[in-house]
Write a protein that binds this DNA or RNA. Sequence first.
DNA 1: TGTATTATTTGATCTAGGTCAAAAGAAACT
DNA 2: AGTTTCTTTTGACCTAGATCAAATAATACA
Lengths: 192, 192
Amino acid sequence: MKLSRFLQNIVPFPADELEDIVSYFERETVYKNVPLVKGGQVCSKLYLVEEGVGRSYYLKEDGKEITQWFFVEGQFMSSIESFFQQNPSLYYLEMLEDSVLYSITRENLDLLFARYHNMEKLGRLLSTEMLTRVVNKLNAIQFQTARERYDYMLNEYPNIVNRVPLGNIASYLGMTQETLSRIRKTESRNKS
Amino acid sequence: MKLSRFLQNIVPFPADELEDIVSYFERETVYKNVPLVKGGQVCSKLYLVEEGVGRSYYLKEDGKEITQWFFVEGQFMSSIESFFQQNPSLYYLEMLEDSVLYSITRENLDLLFARYHNMEKLGRLLSTEMLTRVVNKLNAIQFQTARERYDYMLNEYPNIVNRVPLGNIASYLGMTQETLSRIRKTESRNKS
DNA sequence: TGTATTATTTGATCTAGGTCAAAAGAAACT
DNA sequence: AGTTTCTTTTGACCTAGATCAAATAATACA
């Protein structure tokens, strides 16, 4: 989706504002499994996924990767707290397919927030939307069984499931690969 | 804390804006255990706690209450998704002590967002802050043991622990009362 | 101050899902 | 096409924390 169209779907920017705003974004091609941000670095950019799937993940002491979030077409992608508070990121960021992203730096984004009331509004809407998603995930993790969590995911992200490794999904849902594999086995039986 | 001082700590409003903004808030005294919002209702107001502790909780099918969030002095309190998306709330909202709150309706808040760029900014900053807190809790719930979660809470909310019933804290942390009680027992042993 | 009510602790089980280890299947590389 | 590497599945066993039930302890209330 074109960047300007995407932004305009959220807030109805006047043409001149939109043109200026878009000029601060860069279009980047990013390859599979190449980290955009590593744990410990400050995440300096906010990305918008035009094409591809990405994820953020956390590296446990024992070296295991825990997927924290997936990002698909049309979603903003970043190590949120690091980007907004400008502190070292706990998370790695990478794409799981060769992808096309738009990016903007924190400085430029702040500049646009200050320059356009509409842009500030966009920022507010996006963070409340993100907030809702995180709250939903928290509820899923805190209150539901492993099987229910997987069903929830099938609903929320039906397409992701076939595009990313099972291990990533399992850790995203707070369970082991083995458990997810077993769930899948019986799940398909239930549906047939 | 005075409302105007609280707002000004976040964004430096000019005096005239601030005066107008504050005029849209109401000051309310609310008593212990009286629901501000019930599950199923749309949450029409955003509250700021001047004095007291509140919580949001969710009622499971079996009638058990699960505390979702605590709100202390200086924090905004609401059933967030319900307030922002104007859909029926999954959560109940109540104070755990007789309290003093400031409140503003969704309509008035929207009006202020539209009227003042600074106000929009305040909204954005508050939601990113909230977002960070939810992400932190999600990490705690997803990755940590019951004991670690309790320690985390002691750090983040040292004062809440002595002000609210143990059962509320346990469900907030995603464990049973019994487990929390057992943790407390050995915890105090560790610290002595 | 004694009684009822609610909150917390303690004990005895039970279970969902984790861990460890190895086999089977897919992809990627020569 | 054959070997190496990575991913997914399967099996056997184990543990953190849940559940159920009952005993204390603390609060409210008459």
